[in-house]
Amino acid sequence: MNWKRDLWYGLGLLALVPAALAAQVLPWRERYETLAGKGGREAVAAHGQAARFNGIEWRLKSITEGRPQDPTARPLPPRTKVAIVVVGLRPLTEQASKWFGAMGGTCKIRVTDAAGRTWGPSIRSDLAPKSGLSPSCFNMDADFKLAPLPVGRELTVQTVYVVPADAFRTLRVEVRVAPEPGTVRLLP
């Protein structure tokens, strides 16, 4: 009789372990899929259109070719171009306005080409002329603290990328939004 009790105990553990693992892993699945570019909610804007995601209107303003501003600076890798991306975003609701002032509200802007290759922003500050535009989705007040962006007011973000020359003509913009995971795709 002892072996029957042990068998039921073993079968119970066999069923309990996968359930416990799933309870730990599944809540992180959506975040992982969003970071990996798979899953989460998605908004797409065609050429000249705006995408709406979580009460914020996202619009691709331009993708232009840039050049290093200092001729004595380190040269770019061969067969590459500088892509200057300008995106406008505008809160449409009060909750979206507060997202800009929240510590958890962030976005990551990157570019992809038609072949599916992806590039993050360059850290070189000499690749685009000083524009006074925001380098990220954060709205700062006069004391450089995060501040809500008033409803209807636009924040213009400029990011710079170094991409292969053959990819430049087919670049698209992807914005990964957090804390609620999602992706905004802006097509030129």
Rank of each mutant, 00 (worst) to 15 (best):
R153Y: 06
V25P: 00
I63L: 11
S131H: 03
G152H: 01
T112V: 15
I84H: 00
D166F: 06
F144I: 04
W99H: 10
Q49E: 14
Q24C: 14
R29M: 10
T170Q: 09
E65H: 02
S62E: 14
A128P: 01
L92P: 04
A96M: 09
T72E: 13
L149P: 03
Y161H: 15
F144H: 00
P135Y: 02
H47L: 13
Q95G: 01
G104M: 05
D166M: 08
V163M: 03
V162H: 02
Y32D: 00
S134R: 05
P75A: 13
H47D: 14
V151I: 00
T159V: 13
E180F: 09
G116V: 12
P91D: 07
R90F: 04
M140E: 09
K98R: 13
W119R: 12
G37A: 01
T80K: 01
W58R: 01
W119N: 12
G39H: 00
V17P: 08
T93C: 05
G40L: 01
L89D: 11
T64V: 11
P27K: 02
A142G: 02
W99T: 10
I84E: 00
T156S: 09
R90M: 02
K130W: 07
S122R: 12
L187Y: 10
R124L: 02
R124S: 09
G48K: 10
N2S: 14
P18I: 08
Q69W: 11
A114E: 14
R172Q: 13
Y9F: 15
E154T: 12
N139P: 05
K130D: 07
A43I: 10
A142F: 09
T118F: 00
S134D: 08
V25T: 06
D126N: 15
P68K: 08
A115Q: 15
G105Y: 07
A22F: 14
P188C: 05
F144N: 12
P150L: 03
K108D: 15
S134A: 12
T170H: 08
L11F: 11
G182D: 15
Q24V: 15
P121E: 12
P77C: 00
S125W: 03
A96D: 04
F53I: 01
S134N: 10
R59Y: 08
W28I: 09
W3P: 05
G101H: 02
I63M: 10
L13N: 12
V177C: 06
G101I: 01
R90N: 11
E65K: 06
M1W: 10
L26Q: 02
A73E: 05
L92E: 11
R59S: 07
A73N: 12
Q158M: 02
K81C: 12
M1I: 00
R59D: 00
T183W: 06
E57P: 08
N54W: 05
N139D: 02
V184F: 03
R79I: 07
T106V: 05
W119T: 09
P135M: 06
S136H: 02
Y32R: 02
V175M: 10
